[in-house]
Design a protein around this nucleic acid. Structure first.
Length: 207
DNA sequence: CGACTTTGACCGGCGC
DNA sequence: GCGCCGGTCAAAGTCG
């Protein structure tokens, strides 16, 4: 056994850009905000793919542990997922997707964006969470930053609003209230928000 | 028996 | 140059 440093990564296949794992410019980064039960300790977010947890760490930014996932459905899938509970709302999980799936969905049944329908196709029964009867509808927002144009603008806005925690809290409350409303209107509102007022929704980026 | 989750340790990068 | 932090890997344990 190579007791020391087994992850030397002696240039297996990626050498055209593996030089800069830091430059997330290439990797597509999307963020998803998922509401879960506060008692749900598992940082498992079901998005239709099968993920394998490969690590967990507690960061200084957030007292909650951050979980690291890899796509277990396709070993060649470069997608990575980071899931961390929101520091402000323990009932909200923020999932950060890095990269893109280069394979089809193992179970094209859900994919979120359907707050009204509980089409949670639990492919596996590995859900230690309590009965979903009292669980609020899962709302997933996918925000992609193509080049950073929008992200930058959003960040700017977030920074301005970030000065006032109250502002963020208000937005958060708005979100929670909206998702709690679980009204058909919420879907339209959400779509409209994502379509037009992305800036308002983008505050998730700062979370 | 196989697959998945969990925990600890190690390494690399960045900041001071 | 040293210290800190984030990220990843590997081994062991548990559950189905």
């Amino acid at each position: 056994m190579i007791g020391f440093s087994g992850r030397a990564e002696s240039s297996s296949s990626d050498e055209e850009s593996s030089k800069r794992p830091k430059e997330s410019n290439k990797a597509k980064i999307s963020r998803a905000c998922v509401r879960t039960s506060p008692s749900d300790n598992s940082l498992i977010v079901r998005d239709g793919y099968q993920w394998r947890k490969y690590g967990q760490k507690v960061t200084r930014d957030n007292p909650s542990p951050r979980a690291y996932f890899k796509c277990s459905f396709a070993p060649t899938c470069p997608v990575k997922k980071k899931v961390q509970r929101s520091a402000e709302d323990p009932s909200i999980l923020v999932a950060t997707y890095e990269g893109e799936h280069n394979h089809a969905h193992p179970s094209p049944a859900e994919l979120s964006l359907s707050p009204n329908s509980n089409t949670i196709a639990t492919p596996r029964s590995s859900a230690p969470s309590p009965p979903k009867s009292s669980i609020t509808p899962t709302v997933t927002l996918e925000l992609m930053q193509p080049a950073g144009t929008l992200a930058m603008a959003a960040e700017d806005q977030t920074k301005k609003a970030g000065d006032s925690p109250a502002a963020i809290q208000q937005i958060l409350v708005q979100q929670m209230a909206a998702s709690l409303t679980r009204d058909p209107n919420f879907t339209a509102a959400l779509a409209a928000a994502i379509s037009g007022r992305v800036v308002d929704q983008t505050r998730i980026e700062k979370w």
